[in-house]
Design a protein around this nucleic acid. Structure first.
Lengths: 144, 144
DNA sequence: GTATGTGCAAATCATTTGCATTCTC
DNA sequence: GAGAATGCAAATGATTTGCACATAC
């Protein structure tokens, strides 16, 4: 299987975009951990590693990463959009604690069937879904 | 069944908040149509009806409307959070067209079972879920 | 009477944009 | 060499906050 850098190179070639060391650095950092990220966090991670990448470069890259399905939006919180890398991962949903923010990923096969059903019923071409379940984890239960 | 105004009055009393004509006007306007709304849209709707309500008053009320389960977040789009009133409605999910923004609401009973399963497996107290399915409607299919 | 809510104007903060320079293809 | 991408600084725009005045309880 191609790795994420190769995927982006190919995507860029097909789209007439250019590949740059900055873009490869950003992509490598995104895939370096399993963590979700927001732009500011990612920027700081890069800064800590002495990579001189500006925030606008990150912001300008994100639409392409979404389009090439390397990442997807995970959730919007505290006024910031959070993303996660999905290339090479099974599709999954999120269970989030409203107290401490802890996030658990889980798979849910039944949504495939649901997508098919909706496609037929409403004539949609389905591109994806986003399911978030929220509540309080065992530690936070009772605090609210 | 109590109406939305009564629900808020009771919520306010229990919380030690105050009820004001401005707040009732906002709540009435939210429930006046079935449409989803964002703060700016709601503000303009009120303005059109010659109601002098400021945006900060809307922003300050929203957390309480969420807490009292009169509204919930629907989706985040174009840099703005969109809400919908849910009091008196069955829980539902959204099917959104990435092309024209058209939104269809549908019910999905299987998520109740999923919630129960997650609660047991991870020890969570589940408060709710948000499922969005996206794709292209029949009109927009093929344009992308 | 007191604490809370309101409107206004100003502040904040994530994201976007203009622009001169640099770099890919 | 032309068109894209970069970094910087400035602009944008949603949301929040400070404050003086008004008002609900």
């Amino acid at each position: 299987m191609k790795n994420e850098i190769e995927v982006f190179r190919e995507f860029a070639r097909e789209k007439g975009l250019r590949n740059t060391p900055e873009r490869e650095t950003i992509i490598r950092e995104i895939f370096a951990t399993h963590e979700h990220f927001d732009v500011d966090e990612l920027y700081l991670r890069l800064k800590r590693k002495k990579k001189k990448i500006s925030k606008p470069s990150i912001y300008r890259l994100i639409p392409y990463l979404l389009e090439s399905n390397l990442i997807q939006e995970a959730y919007f919180e505290d006024g910031r959009q959070h993303y996660e890398h999905i290339y090479g991962h099974k599709p999954h949903c999120h269970l989030r604690c409203l107290g401490c923010g802890k996030t658990i990923e889980f798979e849910e096969g039944s949504l495939k069937r649901l997508e098919k059903k909706l496609a037929e019923k409403y004539g949609f071409t389905i591109k994806g879904h986003k399911l978030e379940v929220f509540g309080y984890c065992s530690k936070c239960s009772g605090n609210t």
